[in-house]
Simulated scan of single mutants.
Amino acid sequence: MAEIIRPSTVLPALRTPFHVLTSDGVDLIGEVASPLGQSKGAILTLHPLPTAGGMMDSHVYKKAANRLPAMAGISVVRFNTRGTSSEAGTSSGAFDNGGAEGLDVQAMINYCFDVLALENLWIVGWSFGTDLALRHAKDPRHQGLILLSPPLRTTTNEELFYWNSDPRPITAIVPEHDDYLKPDAARERFAIVPKLRIIPVDDAKHLWVGEPSVHRVLSEINTIVTGDTSPLPLEY
C-alpha cells in the first residue's frame, strides 16, 4: 500500500559514506545515495553557507538523498566543504568564503567520475553552493548547473560571463520571496548570460521550507536530469 511522502520519509537506496582528499590535503567527508535499480543520472550537491548553518544535511539535500534514488533513479552525492560539520562528521581545513572551496569542488567532481564512475552528472548548488558552482564547476565532464536560490554573493560578472563560452545548460530556480535575489532581480543580474533559464517559484522562500517547496525543487531537478516532465509522486 502506498504511503504519503513526509518530511521524515526515507526510501530505499544504497547509502555509502566516503572520504575524499583534495589536492591541498583537505579531507572531505560525505555520502552517496545510489538507486538499488537502474541509474538514470546523478547530482553532486554543493551546500548553503556553512557559517550560517549550511552543510550536506541541509534539508533539501537530505530529502533529495532520501527520495530521489528510489523515486527517480538519481544518485545523490553530498559532502561537507572544508571546515564544515554535519552528523556524518567534519571535513578538515577552514572555511575560505568560496575561494579554496574550489579545490573541494574539483576533488568531488574527480571522485564522481574517477571512482564512482557516475554518468549524466549534474552540479546542483544551493545559495552559497551556487557561487561555488558558477565559479568553480567548469570541469568538462559534467552536464550542466542547477542553481537553487542563487544570491550571487561572491560570483563576479566576469565569472558569470565565462558561461557564455560554455555550451552547457544552466537553470536557476528562484523563490518568489527570496531573501537575496528575487526573480526580477535574478533576471537582471543574469542578463549577461542570455542562455541561463530562470524558473520562478511562487510562494517559496530562500530556504525552501515546507513540503510543497521541496517537492517542486526535487521535481525540477528530476526533470532536468532525467527528462521526465511529470512532477514526482506524492506517495511511494
Rank of each mutant, 00 (worst) to 15 (best):
T229Y: 01
E31Q: 14
K62D: 12
R67D: 03
T223N: 02
V115S: 14
A42I: 11
Y236T: 03
E220F: 02
L49E: 04
V60I: 11
D139S: 02
N80W: 08
D203A: 13
D114T: 11
E188Q: 15
L181N: 11
L21K: 13
A100W: 00
G129Y: 01
G73H: 03
L49T: 10
L11E: 05
L218I: 03
L44R: 04
T223I: 00
E159I: 06
D27G: 00
P233R: 14
N157M: 07
R197V: 12
K195R: 14
E159F: 07
V105H: 04
I5N: 07
L49Y: 05
R78C: 04
I4F: 02
S85C: 09
H215A: 10
A70D: 07
L148I: 13
S92R: 03
A72T: 02
A172V: 08
H59P: 03
G53L: 06
D27H: 14
A100Y: 02
G54D: 05
A117C: 11
T229P: 12
V76Y: 07
V115C: 07
P200M: 08
G99Q: 14
A186V: 14
E211R: 08
L207A: 10
T84D: 00
W126F: 13
H206D: 02
N164C: 07
V174A: 04
T16H: 08
L121T: 09
L68P: 10
S8A: 08
G98D: 09
V209R: 06
A42E: 09
R197H: 14
N222D: 06
V32T: 14
A186K: 04
P169S: 09
T16L: 14
P167S: 11
V105G: 03
L46N: 08
N66Q: 14
I221R: 01
V60M: 01
R189N: 15
R135Q: 09
P12T: 01
E158K: 12
V105W: 02
E3H: 14
G102I: 12
R187S: 06
L14R: 13
S58N: 06
I123S: 06
N80P: 15
T9L: 11
E235D: 09
P69L: 12
N222A: 12
A191K: 12
P169V: 01
T156K: 04
I199Q: 05
K40N: 12
P35K: 05
K182R: 15
A117D: 09
D139N: 11
H215K: 08
E188S: 13
V214S: 01
F113W: 11
L196A: 15
V105F: 03
E235C: 04
D178Q: 05
I4D: 00
N157Q: 08
P167D: 09
R197S: 15
A33E: 09
R141V: 04
E235M: 11
D104R: 09
P50N: 04
A13H: 06
A107W: 05
